[in-house]
Amino acid sequence: MIEFRNASVVAASSDAVLLAPTTLALSERRVSVIGANGSGKSTLVRLVNGLAMPTTGSVLVNGRDTRRQASSVRHDVGFLFTDPSSQLIMPTAIEDVALSLRRTIRDKGARTTAALTALDEIGLAGHSHVSVHSLSGGQRQLLALAGVLAVNPSILVADEPTTLLDLRWRAHVDALLDALPVQVIEVTHDLDAAERADRTLFLDGGKVVFDGKPSRAVALYRDLMSSRAEGRADA
């Protein structure tokens, strides 16, 4: 359960409002977040695992305040980035997943076994000792996901996880995310994926302008985008 209580974000440098005060409770299994470039999607989801802190108000995850219990919130909330190459640190797949497990499993043998299991579950067992550099973009994103899931988060936040992938990998990652037994909050420009959610947040200009049924949110978003495109053509 994720709760926004009047949470807003104001840029420290310029006083620009990146997210207007927002109050929400997200308990749906699949939540998609859509909106134009710069509309505040990343700003909103980064609040969920304490990557960013609200300027006013608060954000609670399973009853914990992201400000006061940041470390335990991060334990509950995994975060998948668009570009896996910044997320992957160790030179081989298995070492990278093991790195995630360092905090929870102190015994090295047990850690390696757990890492191998995590890789196996995502279909990368055959690449466990391969250099991260030699993996394809899609495989790297899977590896990043394995590292996140290895620590058993109850919520996964994904900020455009399929934007850099080709169609085949996109379908594969979509299917994997779909099958996860955890709550998934996904920012996406892929409107088909957005429509498959249980609930959609549509952001514009740093505000949640629609919150509800995915098909309705996507229709509104398409309308807004085409009217802006016409405006630009007229100007």
């Binding site: 359960m1 990557l51 335990s72 509950d76």
Partner: peptide
């Protein structure tokens, strides 16, 4: 985001990681 910068010690509220899972 991966929690690698956090201390391995549990939070001050003293709950073990297992108790912090969501109830859904």
């Amino acid at each position: 985001a991966r929690g690698l910068a956090d201390d391995p010690e549990p939070d001050s509220d003293g709950e073990t990681p297992e108790d912090t899972r969501g109830n859904v």
